[in-house]
Each structure stands twice: as structure tokens, then as C-alpha cells.
């Protein structure tokens, strides 16, 4: 098992928000989607996923409701709120700036 790179602090919210931007998903699907879209490079710790989701619920970025999953099971689906969308834009911008800055340092220094 290749070691997965550690997530930058604070990026977990960003990843979850980005993943949910395409539509409501349940918790397991969020974890799976992040892993797949990063070609298994990023694997979020499942133990921290649900606390993060709940903190985001408290902040009002997400709403949650019970629905039926693909395999006909009862599951809790998370959905972005307008506040969540705004937060996603904000965090995306911040993240881009951060990466650019780091790359700048890497190239010149």
C-alpha cells in the first residue's frame, strides 16, 4: 500500500464541498468519490469524515436528509446550501492563491 500524502490542513472541507457541488451524496459516496477522482492518491480518514460533515451542518453550509441509496438502502444524503456554495467559491480562491504562492516559491527559490 503506497502511503497517501497527508491532506493540507483545512482542505477536507474544500474537498467535501467540491464533491457535493455536483449533487447530493451520502457519506460513504463522498469518501469514495474523493478517492476515485484523485486516482486513489487522496484517501480521507473515514473517522474524521463524519465529524467534519457535522461541523459543516452546524455552520449551515450543508443540509442533510434521509433518502434511498442506489442499492435501495436508507442513507443520509448531504446537500450544499447557498452558504455552502459561497464557501466553496471562497475556499477555492484561497486554495488557488496558496498553491500559486507555493509554486512560485518552489520555482524561484
Amino acid at each position: 500500500m503506497t502511503p497517501t500524502p497527508e491532506l493540507l490542513p483545512g482542505t477536507l472541507y474544500l474537498l467535501i464541498l467540491r464533491t457535493l457541488a455536483r449533487g447530493p451524496l451520502h457519506g460513504y459516496a463522498i469518501a469514495k468519490r474523493i478517492k476515485e477522482s484523485s486516482d486513489a492518491a487522496l484517501e480521507i480518514e473515514e473517522g474524521s469524515l463524519y465529524p467534519a460533515l457535522n461541523r459543516m451542518l452546524v455552520k449551515g453550509w450543508l443540509t442533510a436528509e434521509w433518502g434511498i441509496s442506489d442499492n435501495n438502502r436508507k442513507a443520509r444524503f448531504y446537500n450544499l446550501t447557498p452558504a455552502g456554495k459561497k464557501q466553496l467559491e471562497q475556499e477555492t480562491r484561497d486554495f488557488d492563491r496558496l498553491i500559486e504562492a507555493i509554486q512560485l516559491v518552489m520555482r524561484t527559490a
Binding site: E46, G47, Y50, P51, L57, V58
Partner: peptide, 15 residues
Amino acid sequence: FGSVVRMREDTRSAW
């Protein structure tokens, strides 16, 4: 998944 109990504590503390 790791420790279910720990995760439950963490989640609850969010609220």
C-alpha cells in the same frame, strides 16, 4: 474506519 466510539464523540462535540 478506526474507532467508532471516538468518531461518535468527535461528531457529537461538533454540535
